[in-house]
Amino acid sequence: MQGIEKSYGDLHVLRGVDLDVAPGSIFALLGSNGAGKTTLVKILSTLLRADAGAASIEGFDIATQPADVRGSISLTGQFAAVDEVLTGRENLVLVARLRHLKGAGRIADELLARFQLTDAAGRRVATYSGGMRRRLDIAMSLIGNPPAIFLDEPTTGLDPQSRAEVWSCVKELAEQGTTVLLTTQYLDEAEHLADRIAILHEGRIIANGTLDELKRLLPPATVEYVEKQPTLEEIFLAVIEGAAE
């Protein structure tokens, strides 16, 4: 994409955004609330029209070929778009049928197994944990095998264990060839997952590179011996895993 701009009256949300996401990679768009991350995702997914600039996804122009773009992507928003009245399997079967795919039951069962939800397939989604709902949400977005998926702050509001579950799912997507554009305000999420990271600030990309490249933007660190203490998140996950054994 080149020169993407978007304004609402006098409010300039995007001020000329340039990005290039490599196929099969995880690209993290990092920024605080109000930086313009969700607006950019909506433009790329053809839900909004840019005021200026151009972008293409899988070779399709977002402005002149929106139907082809929508057929090449899937979008998972900040909140899981699942039907709590239905079971996990019923949610997947419903989406497969809406996409007019043959073998909806087989597709559902394969995705349930892929996302470790087989044991919960017959339960109503209202009984699922936050992490399970998000995993189901991502599974639903993969029906039809889109080559690219947009994850807009996928771990917002999740506990540490659920975040770890979602991170594992995202890594698996890229390993199987899916291009992932991930927006997040969590620094550790971008650091843990992304092949490349761009920092969006006040509508502009102010840094873009691998984690190592971004680290080189700062002065070399002073080497000191410090005993590393576990973080609270590490303690939490260890205790939970121990209790499950």
Rank of each mutant, 00 (worst) to 15 (best):
F150S: 00
G88D: 05
D109Y: 05
A113S: 14
H192V: 11
S162Q: 11
D51A: 07
P147I: 11
T231I: 06
I206E: 12
A126E: 14
R134L: 03
I199N: 00
E241R: 15
T38C: 08
A35Q: 09
F236I: 12
V180W: 03
G3M: 06
A104M: 08
D18N: 13
E241V: 00
L11K: 15
L218Q: 14
Q2N: 13
S129V: 06
V41F: 02
T231F: 11
P160M: 06
G144P: 10
S74E: 08
L193I: 06
G122A: 10
D51N: 15
L111D: 09
R106G: 11
A190T: 10
A238G: 03
G71Q: 13
S45D: 10
T179K: 08
L232K: 09
S25G: 08
A55H: 04
A139T: 11
G177V: 03
R99K: 15
S162M: 10
E175G: 13
F79Y: 14
L19R: 08
P220N: 01
G242K: 14
M1F: 12
E245F: 12
T184M: 06
T183N: 01
T179R: 09
I26G: 01
L181C: 08
N91H: 07
Q116G: 12
Q78P: 09
H12S: 10
T46M: 02
Q185D: 08
D159Q: 09
G16A: 03
R70V: 00
G77S: 12
L14Q: 01
D83Q: 11
A55S: 06
L173R: 01
L158N: 00
T210P: 05
M1S: 14
A80C: 04
V226N: 12
